[in-house]
Design a binder for these strands. Structure first.
Length: 177
DNA sequence: ACAAAGATCCGT
DNA sequence: CGGATCTTTGTA
């Protein structure tokens, strides 16, 4: 049993948290009480209103408001009418940021994560510290040279600068890539 | 009120 | 490479 990540962990800047998150465990308890636990292997940062790939670039709306709250909330949204993408918000109040969980040891791809974890709109705003159905536990920090960064995936619309900024972290040689 | 596009995945 | 599928957002 690993230690659950405690209050305050996600109040730091997303760029500091993202690399630390690799190697930690994403945990989901389903309605039938079964547990799913898998090591996080791939994340992306979406950070601030200036970041044209971040939904907060549209300002504070019904959809983005959770990112303006204190870090440590679940931000889920439906993409392409089919897939619930899982983010964890970071930063202080009025610092709209989120970290997209793109992959774990057993699940490759953000859309598949939402499907396997049976996420839906009811998870919007869920407290990652206190929820009894989704949380994060400390894992083993991999060696620094095993973590690589690349530009984010699927955001060419955000313009050359934001599309190329290396805000994706992933485990090198991971089978799920 | 309507049209367009999207932080994806799957089958062809 | 195109279809699935529906919410959010921009424009009128």
């Amino acid at each position: 049993m690993n230690k659950r990540i405690e209050e305050g962990y996600f109040s730091d800047d997303a760029l500091n948290i993202a690399p630390k998150l690799i190697g930690n465990y994403l945990v989901r308890r389903f309605d039938d009480n079964t547990l799913f636990k898998s090591k996080i292997t791939e994340v992306e940062v979406y950070r601030g209103e200036d970041d044209l790939a971040c939904h907060a670039s549209k300002g504070k709306t019904k959809r983005t408001k959770v990112m303006y709250d204190k870090g440590g909330k679940v931000y889920v949204y439906l993409i392409y009418g089919m897939y619930w993408l899982l983010n964890i918000t970071t930063g202080k109040i009025d610092e709209p940021q989120a970290i997209l969980i793109r992959g774990t040891e057993q699940i490759s791809g953000p859309g598949r994560i939402g499907r396997e974890l049976k996420l839906d709109a009811s998870f919007y705003g869920e407290n990652i510290y206190t929820s009894n159905r989704i949380w994060v536990e400390y894992g083993e920090t991999p060696p620094l040279d095993k973590i690589i960064t690349t530009p984010r995936i699927g955001i060419d619309y955000a313009g050359e600068f934001w599309a190329n900024i290396p805000w994706r972290w992933l485990l090198k040689n991971d089978k799920t890539i």
